[in-house]
Structure formats: structure tokens, C-alpha cells
Simulated scan of single mutants.
Amino acid sequence: MLGALQEGPANASELARACSISPSTVATNCKPFVEAEFLTHDGEYEFTGAGLLFFDCFEDVTETLTTSEIAALSVSEHRLPILRSIAETPGRKSDLHHRDGLPSRTTIETAVTEFGVRGWVNEEVSGELSLADTGRTAMVAYEEFLDATETVLATTPFLRRLGERSLTIPVAALTDATPIEESQYDADALADAVLQLTETRADSASVVGIVPVYSPVLLQRFAPIFETGLECRYLLDAETAQRLRTSTYRHIVRTASQRPGVDIRVHHEPLPFGFTTDAERIVIGAHGSPTEYPAGLVSANRMLVNWAMDLHACYWEKAEPLSFEADDGGHRVESK
């Protein structure tokens, strides 16, 4: 069903015909994916950015496991713990029943029978169970699939706000990221993360970033960092630049832009996300709709840093130096 959606949005009837199932079965099976924000449903089902990343995870695991094998492990939350327990400590089925965290005897019997049919578990004449090589392969592949899925779920608020750009992020780049989601109780979480990154950077480091929104809080708190001689290349979009020019805090950026090592430019199209990186660590955030609080990530993943830097370079080529109208005579002051 998810494979059919790779071709584009489809309603329940279209998916039912494509998969030879009923529309009600489509609705039942799509519901958890909509709840996880992997699919949207507004008349038609359609992948979100997070959903496409999840489907990539699914396609990766199908290189090792068949869909039937994945179903055998995912049919119950107990299947993987039972398989792990056999891998860690071979024993009889009666032994498994007494191990912490494992389910009822009936559930264990059903799972072990399934594992035996698939050749994942060996049972000796004595009744002792041990994990076969095929079972270990299945267990490791499924664990990796679950880990990748959990990563996508944790970063879904950020990916949803990032929109189409999320489709270009490799899942592996998100594995060690720390999600950030602002709220009415923590409206400066991203600004705090940016400040922490710049304040703890190595003395020789410079920072590169994109600023897609005007933030008085960030401007005020960035002022002392600019005064330390921070080297930076920041890119603003046109709307942010215009708000900055009319802001009461414009002097902070105007003064900073005249310092050596500071280059601030304006891209004349909206920028889809913002970030700050010192080439080792990155804080990245996206805003989504005007009614949503921003969400983002903090990471030291090299792939994520390189992904952001590559996009910055593309936008930078089309950008122009930031300029301010002088207070006297209307002369323009440009960043170096």
C-alpha cells in the first residue's frame, strides 16, 4: 500500500484497487501512519517528508527480510524480546516463561513455533532453544529498522516544518541528533542552542548560517558575541533583511557587518530553514506554518553539517551584500 503511494497521492478507493483490498482495509492500515505524521489525509493519502524517510527505512530492511518476515516480527511487541532472549541465553520454552519482561506461555509458544518454521530458532531433542544464524540476521536487521524508525519519529516535528527539503536528508544523518521543539513554555529553545554553540566554539572556529526569520531575542543575545570578533557568513532572506533594517536593533548587525571577517548577505527568495554551524556542530531549525512553534535539531553529524553547508553555498552564490540606509544623507552602508 505504501509502495503504491510512491507513485503519488491516492484516495482510499484508488489504493484499494491498486492493492486488491477493500477501502475500509486501506483506512484501517493507513490510520497509524497518519497518526505518526508519515501520511497526510485530506481526501487523498500522501507521504510527508518523514513518511518518505520511513519508507526508505522500510525498503532498506527489505533487502534483508521479506515482508512476511517483517510481519512475523511486527505482529506483536513481544516477538523481538523473545528472539533476543533466546539469543542471549539459550534454554527451553519453559525457561523463557520465567524470564523478566517476557509474556505468557501461550504467546511464547506461538512465537517460538513461528521462529522454528522460519528456521530462526533451533530446538534440540532436549528441548533447548538456540538462535540460528538466520535468526540472528533477522533480529539484527529488524532492530536496525526499529532504531531508524524511532529516529524518524523523534525528528518528525522538525521534518514536517522543513517540508520538501526533508526529502534530501539521509536518515543516517539524524541518528545522533537531539530534537528541539519550541512551545509557549520554551519559546527560545533554538536561540539558546545557537548561543551555546557559538559561545563554546573553538577559538579558531568561524560560523556559517542561514537566518530565515527576524528574531529580536537572538539579535540582543548575539550582540556580545559579535563584539568578540566572531568570524561569520550569515545569509538572510529579503523579508528578514527588511525587518532588520527597520528594527531598533539594526545597529547591532550594522556594526558587526563592518568588522573584518563578517559577511552578511541577502537572498531574495524565502529560505526554507535556518541553521548555525561551526563546521563541527550544527543547530538547525524550521518554522513551518505561522501558527506553529519552530522545531529543530542539534547534532555533530558530519553528513548533516555537510548537507546544510552545501545548501548554504548554493544560496550564497545568488545572494547580495546586506545594506543599510544611513541615518544621514541616505548613503548605503554595505557589509564587507
Rank of each mutant, 00 (worst) to 15 (best):
51 G>L: 09
306 N>M: 15
155 T>V: 11
44 E>I: 03
222 F>A: 00
33 F>R: 05
18 A>C: 04
301 N>F: 08
77 E>G: 08
252 I>C: 04
172 A>S: 07
280 E>Y: 14
189 A>Y: 02
183 S>W: 08
170 P>Y: 11
181 E>W: 05
237 D>I: 03
178 T>P: 08
324 F>S: 11
78 H>D: 15
4 A>M: 12
96 L>P: 03
143 E>T: 15
65 L>I: 04
322 L>E: 04
210 I>S: 07
332 R>G: 01
88 E>L: 05
202 A>E: 12
251 H>I: 01
333 V>G: 04
271 L>G: 00
284 I>M: 06
183 S>F: 06
246 T>D: 01
305 V>N: 15
77 E>A: 11
82 I>Q: 12
148 A>H: 06
332 R>A: 04
270 P>Q: 10
20 S>Q: 08
64 T>A: 07
128 E>M: 11
5 L>F: 13
74 S>P: 05
48 T>A: 10
76 S>C: 11
106 T>P: 09
102 L>V: 02
333 V>S: 10
227 E>S: 15
318 K>R: 06
166 S>M: 10
145 F>P: 03
147 D>W: 07
82 I>Y: 14
281 R>N: 10
185 Y>S: 09
68 S>L: 08
103 P>H: 10
218 L>R: 02
293 Y>G: 00
297 L>H: 14
134 T>R: 11
224 P>N: 06
313 A>S: 14
70 I>A: 13
220 Q>R: 15
155 T>R: 06
334 E>W: 10
228 T>R: 13
232 C>H: 03
2 L>A: 04
25 T>E: 07
287 H>Y: 09
174 L>S: 02
14 E>A: 04
51 G>N: 10
29 N>V: 03
316 W>A: 03
155 T>Q: 08
28 T>G: 03
142 Y>W: 00
228 T>Y: 09
90 P>K: 14
37 E>F: 10
127 G>N: 08
331 H>R: 12
117 V>A: 07
175 T>F: 02
240 T>E: 01
51 G>F: 11
212 P>L: 00
257 S>R: 00
144 E>M: 10
98 H>Q: 12
212 P>R: 00
25 T>S: 11
44 E>K: 13
74 S>D: 13
159 L>Y: 08
163 G>C: 13
162 L>P: 02
119 G>N: 07
105 R>D: 15
149 T>L: 13
212 P>Q: 05
164 E>R: 15
52 L>K: 04
18 A>I: 03
213 V>M: 08
185 Y>T: 06
311 L>H: 10
140 V>P: 05
209 G>E: 00
7 E>G: 12
294 P>G: 00
188 D>S: 12
3 G>A: 09
126 S>T: 03
61 V>H: 10
281 R>H: 12
158 F>T: 00
305 V>W: 15
106 T>A: 15
191 A>S: 15
101 G>W: 09
218 L>A: 01
148 A>E: 04
233 R>Q: 09
157 P>V: 00
48 T>M: 11
51 G>Q: 09
113 T>F: 13
180 I>H: 03
313 A>I: 10
35 E>G: 11
199 E>G: 09
173 A>N: 04
187 A>L: 07
